[in-house]
Lab assay of single mutants.
Amino acid sequence: MPSETPQAEVGPTGCPHRSGPHSAKGSLEKGSPEDKEAKEPLWIRPDAPSRCTWQLGRPASESPHHHTAPAKSPKILPDILKKIGDTPMVRINKIGKKFGLKCELLAKCEFFNAGGSVKDRISLRMIEDAERDGTLKPGDTIIEPTSGNTGIGLALAAAVRGYRCIIVMPEKMSSEKVDVLRALGAEIVRTPTNARFDSPESHVGVAWRLKNEIPNSHILDQYRNASNPLAHYDTTADEILQQCDGKLDMLVASVGTGGTITGIARKLKEKCPGCRIIGVDPEGSILAEPEELNQTEQTTYEVEGIGYDFIPTVLDRTVVDKWFKSNDEEAFTFARMLIAQEGLLCGGSAGSTVAVAVKAAQELQEGQRCVVILPDSVRNYMTKFLSDRWMLQKGFLKEEDLTEKKPWWWHLRVQELGLSAPLTVLPTITCGHTIEILREKGFDQAPVVDEAGVILGMVTLGNMLSSLLAGKVQPSDQVGKVIYKQFKQIRLTDTLGRLSHILEMDHFALVV
């Protein structure tokens, strides 16, 4: 994948999101292997301009796509893939009243899908469409860049269908997702969380590099694949309309690839034109409109599966009536509230959605109805927002919020430890010299600072030695090549209790 991002070429006709291997024109390309080798690009942008032909009021008969309808489940399912879809609609009884809503608040519980998330729908649909058009064949390999849930859905379907599955996901995604993927037989590649989507090191860039190296491999490409919004247009939206008897006044959905909100909203605009569509985008993402909503100094966020630093091709923002931004604290607070007060075992993005819903639905009156999409299960986040310690460490809970008995030293300040200034190293000294210094002084790690004293990161003896043994660096290389740029900081005025929580999850903390 090139470091400079080429513009994806656009073909003359058809839909841009065809499933299957992508040609340089962004659509299915038939021909000899030699032709494909000559024409197939190194990668295709996940934010390529959409060429979708959908228009409100256009006859369904003019759609270029294969459409399906929700099917009634048999008493005995032939395999677990038949437990994807037909998820329950559940009334939220307490939270709406707590925040003064007059309307009825309903939750579409997508964590009841077989793999635990709304992404099971698009995973199965992308595979079925690729099999139907002859792209996927027995023994082929599926590769997908994902925040985890699409990966789980694909790995689940691949396990049943017999495909090899490789999932490329950023490091910030939970260990629970990784464990589930491994249990399903998927191979996992992790990428830096802070890598831009168009960087060769991003999950998108690495996935395309693997595709170019592995024979008979395919990126189904949830960011561009029409099967993504079509899955929701054909099934999720129809289920909502049936469950609500066609009567709903507002739908609120958090947005990642945009397939969920695009597919549902398009069908609702056709069948229930008075329904307002509300999009939820986390602070630090750029999906919301108008652009002024996205202006923030924050560039990272903890909530998973929603928000991006690019506009995915499948996201149709014209069908969203209003956007709201959400933050991590309210997302996790509301997710825990949904679990504790409503018994809905949902993930953090569901918290984002409901946090926005109780604001947006203030305009609705008694007798009206708001539906929220709860995308995934708490299963993926047992060591994250479900953990009091994690919430404390991230600053989303305060010590006084917890009532468990603490040891005698818990409320003492870090400054009472009488710490001395640490050994520091410059980023320009060599790895070999740094190892000598650390061994001589008896230290395992040291902060790396520039000549102005600005902290650049941390270097550890173990990481340097393993990097040297693996051949990633040489003793003569500058130590700046092996620094940890993500590390926890703590102030002298913070409590030892807070430091204790940090050290339970990290090997060190830097006192500043």
Rank of each mutant, 00 (worst) to 15 (best):
Q7N: 15
A8C: 02
G11I: 02
G11A: 13
C15W: 09
S19K: 15
G20F: 12
S23I: 15
S23A: 15
S27V: 12
L28W: 02
L28H: 13
L28K: 07
K30R: 12
K30W: 09
P33F: 02
P33S: 09
D35L: 06
E37I: 09
P46A: 07
P46S: 09
G57L: 02
P59C: 15
P59Y: 02
E62G: 12
S63R: 02
S63I: 08
P64M: 08
H65M: 13
T68E: 10
A69F: 13
A69P: 15
A69T: 10
A71R: 15
S73C: 14
P74L: 12
K75V: 12
I76F: 06
L77E: 06
D79M: 15
D79W: 05
K82E: 15
K82R: 09
K83F: 09
T87S: 07
T87A: 13
M89Q: 02
V90Y: 05
K97Y: 09
K97D: 13
E104N: 09
C109D: 02
C109I: 02
E110V: 02
N113T: 02
A114G: 10
A114V: 08
G115R: 13
L124G: 07
R125D: 05
M126W: 07
D129R: 05
G134S: 14
T135V: 07
L136R: 02
L136V: 08
K137V: 02
P138C: 12
G139N: 07
T141Q: 08
I142T: 04
E144A: 02
P145F: 02
T146M: 04
S147Y: 07
N149G: 08
G162L: 05
Y163M: 02
Y163E: 05
C165F: 05
M169C: 07
M169S: 02
M173N: 02
E176Q: 08
V178I: 06
D179S: 09
D179A: 08
A183H: 10
A183M: 07
A186T: 06
A186H: 02
E187D: 13
I188Y: 02
R190T: 06
T191P: 04
N194M: 10
R196T: 10
P200M: 11
P200Y: 11
H203C: 06
V206T: 02
V206N: 04
A207R: 02
W208L: 05
R209G: 09
L210Y: 02
N212M: 10
E213M: 12
E213W: 04
I214A: 02
S217I: 02
H218R: 13
I219D: 08
Q222S: 02
N225V: 02
N225Y: 02
N225Q: 10
L230R: 06
L230T: 12
A231L: 02
A231S: 06
H232P: 02
Y233T: 02
T236P: 06
A237N: 06
A237C: 11
A237I: 02
D238S: 12
I240S: 02
L241G: 08
L241E: 02
Q243I: 05
G246T: 13
K247R: 11
L248N: 02
M250L: 12
A253Q: 09
S254Q: 11
S254W: 02
T257R: 11
G259C: 02
T260M: 04
T260D: 02
T262R: 04
A265V: 06
R266Q: 02
K267C: 12
K267V: 09
K267R: 09
K267A: 13
K269W: 02
K269D: 05
E270A: 09
E270N: 06
E270S: 05
C272G: 09
G274F: 14
